[in-house]
C-alpha cells in the first residue's frame, strides 16, 4: 500500500509547478493553465485525505473546487479574449495601464 505522504508529495510537485508557472510565464494563457494545475494539486490532496480517512467530505469539496475552476476558466478566458482585442497582446508585462 502506498503511504499517504507519497500522494502528498505528488500534489506538492504539481502545486509547485503551477506556482512557478504563474510566477514566471509571461503569457496569460499559461498563467491560467498553471492555476488549473494548482487547483488540481489541491483536489488530489482532498481526494487522498478523503479516501485515507474514510470521510466523503473531501470528495464533495473536490466537486465544489471543480465548479469553481469551471467559472474561473470561463471568466479568465473571456478576459483574455477581451484583453487581446483591446491591446493586441496577452503578455502581462505590457498590460500596465493601471500601473500609473
Amino acid at each position: 500500500m502506498v503511504p499517504i505522504e507519497h500522494y502528498f508529495i505528488l500534489a506538492l510537485i504539481m502545486f509547485t509547478c503551477g506556482t512557478l508557472g504563474v510566477l514566471f510565464r509571461r503569457n496569460l494563457l499559461f498563467m491560467l493553465m498553471s492555476i488549473e494545475l494548482m487547483l488540481n494539486a489541491v483536489n488530489l490532496v482532498f481526494v487522498t485525505a478523503s479516501s485515507f480517512l474514510g470521510d466523503l467530505d473531501g470528495q464533495i469539496m473536490v466537486f465544489f473546487v471543480i465548479t469553481l475552476a469551471a467559472c474561473e476558466a470561463g471568466i479568465g478566458l473571456a478576459m483574455v479574449i477581451a484583453i487581446y482585442r483591446r491591446y493586441g497582446t496577452i503578455n502581462p508585462d505590457f498590460l500596465k495601464v493601471l500601473r500609473g
Binding site: 509571461r26 503569457n27 491560467l32 493553465m33 487581446y84 497582446t89 496577452i90 508585462d93 505590457f94
Partner: peptide, 17 residues
C-alpha cells in the same frame, strides 16, 4: 482553452520578458 487559443493567433508573442 483550446478554443481560445485557436481564436487568438496561436503563435503570438511567445517571447518571455
Amino acid at each position: 482553452f483550446m478554443f481560445v487559443i485557436m481564436i487568438l493567433n496561436p503563435d503570438m508573442d511567445l517571447k518571455e520578458t
